[in-house]
Design a protein around this nucleic acid. Structure first.
Lengths: 190, 190
DNA sequence: GGTAGCATATGATTGAAATCATATCTGACT
DNA sequence: AGTCAGATATGATTTCAATCATATGCTACC
């Protein structure tokens, strides 16, 4: 039910929360209680600009967690806004901190964190590629097209149209094969 | 000398490496020995595309580490290319894995990883903002302009010119103050 | 004091992706 | 079978950032 390291924690550390749309979980300023795992729905982490502009820091979807850093700090600097109603699990920070005494938990936590950092770094690098065609090719090489082209485009910070066009251009250049509608694969090495 | 969690490791786990420019550290395929910390110089992590295109996965500069994920996996999927000659420290993966038995080390590792994930996530979110002016404002709110505008622009994946223009526009809109040449600060809340 | 290099800055032009529009295909539900 | 939503796809237009060009201020070094 819970993602990897957290499923090892005692039940008493877990608190189920049902959240309505547009509900705000005020994390900012208050003493942090722990991190959250999204079971269903969507949550944005937002920070306020000096003149009230709201900036989205992170979008958490079902199966992902947010506010993990609150485990290690007393204060948190953003609030969570529920974009789509759903269920959350709050996990006590004390339980997580205590669990670090268990080497298995700590290793599991470290493994997941390392993987995530690596994936994010790669994505940052890919998103930094200017030309849509190059970006899409890099995204394909990274194996980022695993569901729809629309999702792929969003991940690459491209409009779906730009992604379709880039894929078409890559097919025409012989770099990518398009065996069927909506399916794209790298052509095998020459 | 070494960044936070790694300075707690025994000396025997550390191996100093002097690297010449364009030298390649072949991590790919071979059994991973550990992670690296860059003391001086610049290193790119690269992955090969199916037709020989090279993609930069990560750029490591002095003071940062790379291949951390190799601690948790037997095989690594990119190679490291030294872009600018310098010195590296290789850290044995066995020593790091063993150190996770120490709760202090594990907590320190977890804290750093959490912070890094949070920072990267925020940066990904900011880089995804289309309009240069909005992106620059978000970057300012996030406190990313801590050295030159040129560095700031690179972090935001913007050309320096675009960053200067966006800053100028924000100053003219009254959102940002420009107390002196090259210095920009958010105007206090209304 | 001269000059070399770099950050800052801004104007003009170009290029590429976003946006808008439109159409087809597909699967789910009725 | 009919309809509805969403993915796929592509053409036309617009927008906005990259690029090119140019100039100035600042610092370092000889």
């Amino acid at each position: 039910m819970l993602p990897d390291p957290y499923n090892r924690l005692p039940d008493i550390a877990l608190h189920r929360v049902s959240a309505a749309s547009r509900e705000t979980l005020f994390l900012q300023g208050s003493v942090t209680k722990g991190l959250y795992v999204v079971l269903a729905g969507r949550v944005h982490l937002e920070r306020m600009g000096p003149n009230g502009e709201r900036f989205v820091i992170h979008r958490a979807t079902a199966g992902t967690s947010f506010a993990e850093a609150s485990i290690f700090s007393d204060r948190y600097h953003c609030d969570a806004v529920v974009i789509e109603a759903g269920d959350l699990i709050r996990i006590d920070k004390a339980a997580v901190l205590a669990a670090f005494a268990d080497a298995d938990f700590a290793l599991s936590y470290g493994r997941r964190a390392s993987r995530q950092i690596q994936a994010q770094r790669q994505l940052l690098e890919i998103v930094g590629i200017r030309r849509a065609e190059d970006r899409v090719l890099a995204g394909l090489v990274a194996g980022l097209l695993d569901s729809t082209v629309v999702d792929f485009a969003a991940l690459l910070q491209l409009s779906p149209e730009a992604a379709y066009r880039a894929l078409r251009a890559l097919v025409e250049a012989g770099q990518v094969i398009n065996p069927s509608r909506g399916e794209y694969r790298l052509r095998a090495a020459t």
